[in-house]
Design a protein around this nucleic acid. Structure first.
Length: 448
DNA sequence: AAATCCACCAACCGCCGCTAA
DNA sequence: CTTAGCGGCGGTTGGTGGATT
């Protein structure tokens, strides 16, 4: 079962397609269209199995195929989607018009080899370290033994061996995308609420495949690193992405050090991992564990899939939206969906993206001014977002905000035909299907 | 100039899930 | 209900051509 009859036939031709064969297939598709691949060889006169014909058409001959190098935005989108769904090439390809799953798969496999090659040098050491409480010391030791590609500067460590309470392990904005600090594997995505330091206690913890500190390839010096990422610690295991700031937050929390760009350790409201989709979870006020703490639960599948359709849309509509922008959008999103327990914030995300890309205030009156990722504003923004989401909710409930007008405005921003209707559908779904949860039900920080 | 290496990518293979008989 | 046939998908292979020795 499962094996195709044509695959057993000895007479079928294999290997590269000749121009003549291509022509035959094109002629057939032009004449009959496609649908039943099994009958293609017979009717087209090709000595190929139907499967091979299908593959050739889909990956090479169909007219809407887009060939050539991947653009930076395409690459960005691929990385983003792969972070969320892994090797689901067909799904990823569905978000890149004209690209095939095979092409993306090939691109990824060749791309990731290069990227991980450098990381591999110290990944085993990181694994061995278990990323335990001596991580800062471990990093320090690494810096003394590794070459210029991966080290912490000695001067950036405090005298007791801890990482300085600044942003030294954060990548520069321009490097972070192609040179992630952290890669990781999710062992068991079903378990909820694992902290970075819960690794040894939980099978659902993260393992770190690599840790890289970005340095200048010529001078060896650590490049200027910015706290561009104001998002916070990994709170929930539904997240698939653990960022450098997660580490920073953990360091802050465990060492009692205030890290610039992060909120005080006693709060995590409005914080989740960088990507709102990866980290989004539904706060359940009815759930209370033995410690009297409310727990979170992972998003259900439909929420997850719906969310996954959103971020690529944001990306696809904004040529200049980079990771730092995304971090802000994400923070905004997370503040609506996570800390308040409701799926608000989608349209806010879009407005936020819009104002970022155009560098102007948007027309959305309830949004705060233009976000920035500076250290000073990060904590303020978080609080602002939080209040903002609540205010948004209140305005919706009191009919102060007209949802129809809201979506009209969004329509004007995103004039993208079919995708647009999907967007509106999504927003309608969000606004109509989720009950708000009181702000007083924020879960407590379990690390305090 | 020849041999070897290596990256790329088109194509193949096997598995899965759906569907119709 | 079972199962053959099929489309679709992801992992993998191997041919090709450019780069390096």
């Amino acid at each position: 079962m499962g094996r195709h009859l044509c695959c057993n036939q000895q007479k079928v031709k294999r290997g590269l397609w000749s121009p003549d064969e291509d022509e035959k297939l094109i002629n057939y598709i032009t004449k009959y269209g496609y649908g039943c691949w099994s009958e293609v060889p017979e009717k087209s006169g090709l000595q190929r199995c139907g499967k091979s014909c299908r593959l050739r058409w889909i990956n090479y001959l169909r007219p809407d195929i887009r060939r050539g190098n991947f653009s930076p935005n395409e690459e960005k989108l691929i990385i983003h989607l792969h972070t969320m769904v892994g090797n689901r090439w067909a799904y990823i390809a569905s978000h890149l018009p004209g690209r095939t799953d095979n092409e993306i798969k090939n691109y990824w496999n060749s791309w990731i080899k290069k990227k991980l090659a450098k990381a591999e040098i110290i990944s085993k050491n990181i694994e061995a370290s278990k990323v335990h409480n001596n991580l800062p010391q471990f990093l320090f030791e690494q810096s003394a033994t590794r070459d210029n590609d991966c080290k912490l500067l000695k001067t950036e460590m405090t005298t007791d061996g801890h990482a300085a309470p600044l942003s030294h392990v954060l990548p520069s904005k321009e490097n972070s995308e192609t040179f992630p600090l952290w890669d990781y594997k999710m062992i068991n995505p079903s378990t909820t609420r694992n902290s970075l330091y819960g690794i040894e206690e939980s099978k659902a913890a993260l393992t770190f495949d690599s840790l890289l500190i970005r340095t200048d390839s010529e001078t060896g010096a650590i490049k200027e690193l910015n706290t561009w990422d104001p998002s916070g610690i990994l709170i929930n295991s539904s997240s698939k992405n653990c960022k450098n700031s997660d580490l920073q937050y953990a360091l802050q929390r465990d060492n009692g050090l205030q890290v610039q760009g992060l909120p005080a350790s006693s709060t995590w409201h409005g914080y989740s991992s960088l990507n709102p989709i990866e980290s989004s979870f539904c706060y359940n006020p009815n759930s209370e564990n033995s410690n009297g703490l409310h727990s979170t639960s992972s998003m259900n599948e439909s929420d997850f899939m719906r969310s996954m359709d959103m971020a690529p849309l944001i990306y696809s509509q904004h040529e200049t939206l980079d990771l730092a922008d995304h971090a802000n959008v994400a923070t905004m999103w997370a503040s609506g969906s996570s800390s308040n327990g409701v799926d608000l914030g989608y349209s806010e995300c879009l407005y936020s993206a819009e104002q970022y890309n155009h560098g102007t205030e948007n027309s959305c009156s309830y949004l705060p001014p233009l976000y920035d990722a500076s250290e000073e504003s990060a904590a303020i923004n978080i609080k602002h977002n939080e209040n903002n989401s609540l205010r948004y909710l209140e305005q919706i409930q009191s009919n102060e905000i007209n949802i129809a007008q809201e979506m009209d405005a969004i329509q004007q921003i995103f004039e993208c035909g079919e995708q647009n209707s999907n967007l509106v559908t999504t927003i309608q779904y969000c606004l109509g299907s989720h009950s708000p949860v009181s702000d007083s039900h924020h879960p407590q920080d379990t690390f305090d």
